[in-house]
Design a protein around this nucleic acid. Structure first.
Lengths: 256, 256
DNA sequence: CAGTGGTCTAGACCACGCT
DNA sequence: GCGTGGTCTAGACCACTGG
């Protein structure tokens, strides 16, 4: 019996509910005996199920059925100002969406730095080689579990800009905490976004991304890149979101 | 040396251009000798490169570096009527986009059938159990190579409808050839789309999808589901597009 | 320490393409 | 028939968890 067939059999047990979310699978030794195959074959089968997001392995403990609840991400609403009222209550678009779906959003402390733009970011922001950006890296969670990586990059002058009535020491885009301002931070520093371009590609995560999101090395993720352009057509921000497929669905709604 | 490290070394050779697009890698026997590992380890490394889309294997022939040219798919323009002029020349939105990017579009003969809707399609089209749909399944190619699977489903009454001035025997949505009508087929049968909802999720292909698209079993693909709603809010069509990540990028542009 | 998952090798064997 | 990739087993061994 081939690994793909063993994986298929185990998947059937998961989908049918015979193995509940969070339940522990029989040990690889037991499965090998049951399916009358080598342990190595079981290992390969489990690796397949890990990639599809059906199970999660913990060395020394066991293999467990995954229980992520899928979350919709309404990309067309994002930053459109539909939720301007929420901004006043210190809640951003991501958080509002998570709450609407009955879960509790949270976010690790943003990692802020000023650094030389890498090749891709430089091209998106139309920067020359060696030019710097303000980087703001975040891990978004729902019910305490990782759902998305969301890294934003701003040209240095915009990232360091401060609103007229700002009374903090550092600019809002470089603050290592969540900041919300009426109309959005970019608007309040004089660079409102007028147009966005989203580029979406499914791919495999880097080892770093896989670790932070707690997914298997080959698990499919969506790389969602949003480039925001200001009134004069200048790119003012690029946001790179990495969304694992087993817990995310991106939604766009449009009138024709 | 572990498979991941071997894969990394080979990927470096591909990315650096030492191994050109389309080039054949050394045989697994040779690679095993070179890296001083077992052939099985090489096989696992090649499997990783297949999943990421870097190489393609052909039994009995060899392992070859992939050379797909990525294509952008401008989902926000699709069916918006921006290209109504193209419709007159018998060119649909997909084809127009491919031509703009300097490649030659083609499409296998659409597979048309009337069938009972599966659970997901029934829910999207708000049909009861057992209700039928007109299914129209297509494989889209660029420069003769597979790029996307695009399957459309219509409620039976709409799929069988015929425009007033239609002189063919079968309805345009059931014709086993490409049909273009001014304003789009759905409008010409009295059910223009007024609003669409797109749901995008990265996932792993089914074995059938993997075969038809000529990709590895675990390769990341995007499932893009577009549900089109008519003037009265009734869903008139659902289109499921499967786009492999190594050759597709989905683009949305929006004014804020 | 025993029990769990994870990794690699050696080797037998199969499937395919070509000449 | 030879060379290619693909598959599975047996078994040694490692890494982690928890009593």
């Amino acid at each position: 019996m081939r690994p793909a067939l063993v994986a298929e059999a185990l998947r059937a047990r998961i989908d049918s509910g015979e193995l509940e979310a969070g339940a522990k699978l029989p040990s690889t030794r037991h499965l090998a005996a049951e399916f009358e195959v080598n342990e190595r074959t079981i290992y390969d089968a489990v690796a397949l199920l890990r990639t599809t997001g059906h199970v999660r392995s913990q060395q020394g403990k066991g293999v467990f059925v995954r229980d992520y609840r899928p979350l919709e991400w309404h990309a067309h609403k994002f930053e459109r100002g539909d939720r301007r009222d929420d901004r006043a209550t210190n809640t951003d678009d991501w958080k509002a969406g998570v709450i609407e779906q009955g879960m509790t959003p949270s976010q690790d402390t943003p990692q802020v730095s000023v650094e030389v733009a890498d090749a891709r970011v430089a091209e998106w922001l139309q920067l020359g080689p060696g030019e710097k950006v303000v980087a703001r890296r975040r891990l978004r969670r729902a019910d305490e579990r990782p759902y998305q990586l969301a890294d934003s990059f701003f040209p240095e002058d915009i990232g360091r800009a401060v609103p007229a009535d700002w009374d903090d020491e550092v600019s809002p885009l470089m603050a290592e905490r969540d900041v919300t301002l009426p109309g959005g931070i970019l608007a309040s520093v004089g660079h409102p976004q007028r147009r966005v371009r989203d580029e979406i590609s499914p791919r495999t995560p880097s080892t770093d991304e896989a670790e932070r999101l707690e997914i298997a090395a080959g698990a499919p993720v969506c790389e969602h890149v949003r480039i925001g352009y200001g009134a004069d057509g200048r790119p003012v921000r690029v946001m790179i979101t990495i969304a694992p497929g087993d817990r995310n669905r991106i939604v766009y709604e449009m009138e024709l």
